[in-house]
Design a protein around this nucleic acid. Structure first.
Length: 924
RNA sequence: GGGCCCAUAGCUCAGUUGGCUAGAGCGCACGACUGAUAAUCGUGAGGUCGGAAGUUCGAAUCUUCUUGGGCCCA
């Protein structure tokens, strides 16, 4: 008989599951399979009737390709939705898009080079509409490439008719409750284009402006300032705004000097006194007759230099001492800060300038003049009347119109507001009721809501949802009633908001509408709504409207910029129309920075493109990266970081591969070993998995994905690869295929394989399904169609403690063996024989371990009694002295154990008796 | 300028109510194996916790200040 090739008589791992992921190629195939299966619908159908969990998607803006922030956001949501599903919930996910607003108008105007005023509104809006939908499709493909599962065939889009219709109803509800009012607010305005401008439409350029110092005579010093011959000196570079002056702002904590000059007292900030006097050409040592704190001068009354009006002294934190006089001319109708401080003091908002930039009758003698031209006339008059202290000019950076390049200015215009004031207390109450993660989110939103001004919801824009208000052409009364809202909403539901621009007012109002004045002719509002009102209505248009969802949502999850944005606008509309926050919980993530913690920007060139990452590494690597970081804070990403994540992935993948390889002949239906018959070490492996499984489940439930990542990583590397697999591999390979020792290990590996696949599925969705295709006996078409099971064994704390002690001893022995290896006493562990000299405690541990040599990976172990003489060449460790020597005998050609018994069976002269017994199972 | 947040080994993160020589994985170095092989195993070297001051018997953990960074306002 010829000597057999013993390597053919082993149960070596074998699997088609590739070692290399090749994710950029493989993932799209897996996604195709999901699409064929219609995985979303299938999962939803299966979970129907289970407790619902609604994560409501915050809509990204449909413009541009997705960036790394989008990727992180969507991946986090996907991990949550998938883990909730596997945890036994019905977790629908309806993705959304935000589509109206300036950036798309901007993009259309730029890319098509068109002038908004020359293209018919409906045509312009259609272009915006098409553009937005193009990007919805584009981003949808990119989100799907990330592996995100959702109702992609039926998303919500803010330009959808049914969405716009629902939004109109939100507006109507707010109006009905008296929360909508018309007021004045300054906006950037271009007189040449006769239009309001968004901030993004303003560009800064150098300009030379007048720089004048004007005296405002004190009329009532409130007992603090003298009234006779006393003036407050203001400084301005826009003399034309003086007709709109209603106040003078001082810094509350600044000191102000009262300086006597030529018989009159002038008030200027102490720090600026010298500079002002110098500018005014006043020589000599100033004669300071008094010093005051700004806050002591509050409500002093001055007299306007040329209007028949008073000017109130107020306090503002925006006052600086960088230039001017420290006494700030305040015209709430012509400046943002002036406006805001004006709200606090309830100042009138005057803007006596019309749409062409000409002064109105309210500007008195300047009526009819173009605002800039009036600068000269005003200055001349101030000289004439003796109010001009000094007049110079100044070069500075000033906002200009992006189109016509003319200077722009702030002009108070009529705007629609949502009255936060009327339900601020309710907002603050509701903030308390929400579950905030991280907890500081509550403070952040609370502070914002506590001191925010009313919500300006109107925009002088075309690409948006129109504000559904009519005006009586006879008496100009605003009309918004249940009937008009109903009518408009229904029209929008049918035709979309485009109908507002296509039809005349009389076609849009309910039949028979009559104004209280008796008028029956109407015109329609031309402003559109702030896009935050669009997305802020999503809880009504989506959560409440769609039957698979519910209101309020269980969770909103967005970047921390959304405290100001969507969290805020959604809360406002929710409380306004339903008296309640539209979400039970807010979870927020940080921003993604580069490897050095710097903000990413295209100009610096430090961006990480998720699409490139997926082409290079794969979506699962990106997903694993998301799971690996502390997303609640800002996170970093770089190629080096992704490489590291890819290493972790490789380890996890190899773990799966090894499990699959060892299970190639395992049929769970027939080969499973009952728990009580399992070898102790196999039970220990399962026991550890039980623990890991529990921790991973809890990690998912607390949205601590980093815990999930760490637990899985450590389980694969420490528990499995370096211990369990390493220690059990010889047994797996050498024993008869169906021997209990092998089936026992296979049972443990099978349970671990199935369980682990389910644990990683929410994160490594592609890989998990790839693995699932190889799992023996797996019936479901996707692991996403399974739920987490209870762990295969109940956690046994005693077993865990015992093997913990074994591992500690093993570590000591490995150290000793490493020393022997360095000294060339041994090579691989199987060439070693050990003499162990334990103390009583360690002896008990060693005695408790079945198959000790297997656990230590050596050929021979000789455990001496406690107290035995320790030879001088043994190395002492805690509780144990160890002598490592080369094992005596020959190496069994089959199992590679070194033993003196090789050749005991004359038929097999090169192998050990154990192998001789096992080999018959292979040779027949 | 204001509100909120972040800062622990090269990297990603742990470090309950302040208390043993600050931990893990990866990476790195060295070594082993060649029956998980574009794999696998072992050993080891790396932080004094952004900085300063303070409270305390004792602080990465508390206080103040400070530096750098981020989000949102102004």
């Amino acid at each position: 008989m010829e000597k057999p090739d013993y390597s053919k008589t082993l149960n070596l791992p074998e699997t088609e599951f590739p070692m290399r992921g090749n994710l950029p190629q493989r993932e799209p195939q897996i996604q195709d399979k999901w699409n064929e299966l219609n995985i979303y619908a299938k999962v939803q159908a299966k979970q129907n009737g289970k407790p619902k969990f609604v994560l409501h998607d915050g809509p990204p803006y449909a413009n541009g390709d997705i960036h790394i922030g989008h990727a992180m956001n969507k991946i986090l949501k996907d991990i949550i939705v998938k883990s909730k599903t596997m945890d036994g919930f019905d977790a629908p996910y309806v993705p959304g898009w935000d589509t109206h607003g300036m950036p798309i108008e901007h993009a259309i105007i730029k890319s098509k080079g068109i002038n908004r005023h020359e293209v018919p509104v409906t045509e312009f809006r259609q272009m915006c509409f098409d553009y937005a939908l193009d990007f919805v499709e584009r981003q949808k493909g990119q989100f799907q490439r990330l592996g995100v599962r959702g109702d992609w065939e039926n998303p919500y889009i803010t330009l959808q008719p049914r969405y716009e219709a629902a939004q109109i109803r939100v507006f109507g509800e707010m109006a009905k409750r008296g929360y909508i009012y018309k007021g004045l607010k300054p906006v950037y305005y271009c007189a040449a284009c006769e239009t309001a401008l968004a901030e993004a439409e303003v560009e800064y350029a150098d300009k030379t402006s007048p720089s004048i110092y004007v005296k405002f005579a004190v009329k009532d010093g409130k007992g603090v300032l003298p009234t006779e011959h006393t003036s407050i000196v203001i400084w301005t570079t826009t003399p034309w705004t003086l007709p709109a002056n209603v106040a003078i702002a001082l810094g509350p904590d600044f000191e102000y000097n009262l300086v006597e000059v030529n018989g009159e007292n002038l008030l200027v900030a102490k720090e600026l006194t010298a500079a002002v006097l110098k500018t005014a050409g006043i020589e000599g040592e100033p004669n300071i007759v008094g010093t005051f704190l700004g806050k002591d001068l509050e409500r002093v009354v001055a007299k306007h230099p040329f209007m028949d009006r008073e000017s109130l002294v107020i306090l503002g934190d925006h006052v600086t001492l960088e230039s001017g006089t420290g006494c700030v001319h305040t015209a709430p109708g012509h400046g943002m800060e002036d406006y805001l401080v004006g709200l606090k003091y309830d100042l009138p908002i005057l803007a006596p300038v019309d749409g062409q930039g000409k002064f109105t009758a309210d500007a008195g003698k300047y009526a009819g003049q173009f605002y800039i031209k009036a600068n000269k006339a005003i200055a001349a008059d101030l000289h004439e009347s003796g109010h001009m202290l000094a007049e110079k000019s100044l070069d500075h950076s000033y906002p200009h119109c992006w189109r016509c390049k003319n200077p722009v200015f702030f002009r108070a215009t009529e705007q629609w507001f949502g009255s936060i004031d009327k339900f601020r207390e309710q907002l603050l109450e509701q903030i308390k009721a929400v579950n905030w993660d991280p907890h500081w989110g509550e403070v952040r939103l609370h502070n914002m809501v506590a001191d925010r001004t009313d919500w300006c919801i109107s925009r002088q824009r075309k690409w948006g949802v129109p504000i559904p208000i009519f005006y009586c052409t006879d008496c100009n009364t605003e009309i918004v009633t249940d009937e008009t809202i109903d009518k408009v909403s229904n029209l929008f539901a049918e035709h979309g908001s485009q109908v507002w621009f296509e039809k005349e007012a009389h076609e849009l109002v309910p039949e028979g509408l009559t104004c209280s004045c008796g008028g029956t002719h109407f015109r329609k509002e031309s402003d559109t709504m702030d896009v935050w009102f669009d997305s802020g209505s999503s809880h009504m248009a989506v959560c409440e409207a769609r039957e698979e969802l519910h209101w309020p949502a269980d969770l909103y999850l967005e970047g921390s910029d959304q405290y100001r944005g969507w969290f805020n606008s959604s809360l406002s509309t929710g409380v306004a129309v339903r008296g309640q926050a539209p979400y039970k919980m807010i979870l927020s993530h940080g921003f993604t920075l580069d490897g050095e913690g710097r903000k990413m920007s295209k100009s610096i060139g430090n961006t990480v493109d998720p699409l490139k990452v997926m082409n290079q590494y794969g979506a699962d690597i990106l997903r694993l990266w998301v799971a690996s970081v502390d997303f609640r804070a800002d996170t970093r990403v770089s190629d080096a970081i992704l490489k590291q994540v890819a290493e972790v992935y490789r380890k996890v993948r190899n773990t799966f591969r090894y499990l699959l390889g060892n299970l190639n002949d395992f049929d769970p239906k027939t080969d499973k070993v009952a728990p009580e018959q399992l070898l102790e070490i196999d039970r220990f492996a399962l026991n550890r998995f039980t623990q890991v499984s529990d921790r991973v489940h809890n990690g998912y439930r607390k949205y601590d994905f980093h815990t999930v990542y760490v637990e899985i990583n450590n389980f694969c590397t420490v528990d499995l690869s370096s211990f369990y697999f390493d220690v059990s591999k010889d047994r797996m390979y050498t024993v008869a295929p169906s021997a209990l020792e092998r089936r026992s290990a296979q049972t443990a590996m099978y349970e671990i394989l199935v369980g682990l696949t389910k644990l990683v599925a929410p994160i490594l969705s592609h890989t998990a399904d790839e693995v699932w295709g190889y799992v023996p006996g797996a019936e479901e078409e996707s692991v996403q169609l399974t739920e987490w099971d209870d762990a295969p064994v109940a956690f046994d704390a005693e077993l865990d403690r015992k093997w913990g002690a074994v591992l500690t001893v093993r570590d000591e022995i490995l150290k000793a063996m490493e020393v022997a290896r360095q000294e060339k006493v041994i090579g691989k562990s199987l060439t070693a024989a050990l003499d162990l000299y334990p103390n009583a405690e360690t002896l008990a541990v060693l005695h408790s371990v079945p198959r000790l040599h297997e656990v230590l990976g050596v050929s021979q172990v000789n455990v001496h009694e406690a107290g035995a003489d320790v030879p001088g060449d043994a190395v002492a460790y805690a509780g144990l002295a160890i002598r490592v020597k080369a094992a005596a005998g020959e190496t069994c050609e089959r199992c590679r154990v070194v033993t003196t018994e090789v050749g005991t069976d004359p038929n097999h002269p090169t192998i050990c008796p154990v192998c001789a017994g096992n080999v018959v199972h292979f040779l027949g």
